[in-house]
Lab assay of single mutants.
Amino acid sequence: MSYSVTLTGPGPWGFRLQGGKDFNMPLTISRITPGSKAAQSQLSQGDLVVAIDGVNTDTMTHLEAQNKIKSASYNLSLTLQKS
């Protein structure tokens, strides 16, 4: 079951990613910084990142996902799936 979260910026957003197409692993939330915008939302460590700002992550490399997140200036919309 997927869910959506919109973090209001600017960054830093307070989470780290792992995985990506180049690692043959789905993009997942690997760490959440305590007290951060991510920590105050529904994000959980281990959640799968399905889309970033409406763009499906199935074919994204780790770097492409990082760049997509960094390019979000004020709002960052994520679609996630609980692990």
Rank of each mutant, 00 (worst) to 15 (best):
M1H: 04
Y3F: 11
Y3D: 05
V5S: 03
V5Y: 03
V5L: 05
T6I: 11
L7H: 00
L7F: 11
T8P: 15
G9A: 05
G11C: 06
G11K: 10
G11R: 11
W13F: 13
F15L: 11
F15T: 00
R16W: 12
R16Y: 13
G19I: 00
G20T: 02
G20R: 03
G20I: 01
K21Y: 08
D22E: 12
F23D: 09
F23E: 13
N24S: 12
N24C: 09
N24F: 12
M25K: 12
M25E: 13
M25P: 02
P26Y: 01
P26D: 04
L27T: 06
L27H: 07
S30V: 07
S30T: 11
S30L: 09
R31S: 13
R31V: 09
R31D: 14
R31A: 12
T33K: 08
T33R: 08
T33L: 09
T33C: 07
G35F: 07
G35M: 08
S36R: 03
A39G: 10
Q40D: 12
S41E: 08
S41N: 11
L43W: 01
L43V: 09
L43P: 00
L43F: 05
L43K: 01
S44F: 07
Q45V: 14
Q45M: 13
D47A: 05
D47N: 03
D47G: 02
L48F: 10
L48C: 14
V49N: 01
V49D: 01
V49I: 12
V50F: 06
A51N: 06
A51R: 09
A51C: 10
A51K: 12
A51Q: 07
D53C: 06
G54Q: 06
G54A: 05
V55P: 01
N56Q: 11
T57G: 05
T57N: 02
M60D: 04
M60S: 02
H62Q: 12
L63F: 09
L63S: 13
L63I: 09
L63V: 12
E64K: 04
A65H: 00
Q66Y: 09
Q66T: 14
N67S: 09
I69M: 08
K70A: 14
S71Q: 15
S71K: 14
S73G: 15
S73E: 15
Y74W: 13
L76R: 02
S77T: 14
S77R: 13
L78S: 01
L78I: 08
T79P: 00
Q81M: 14
Q81L: 13
K82R: 15
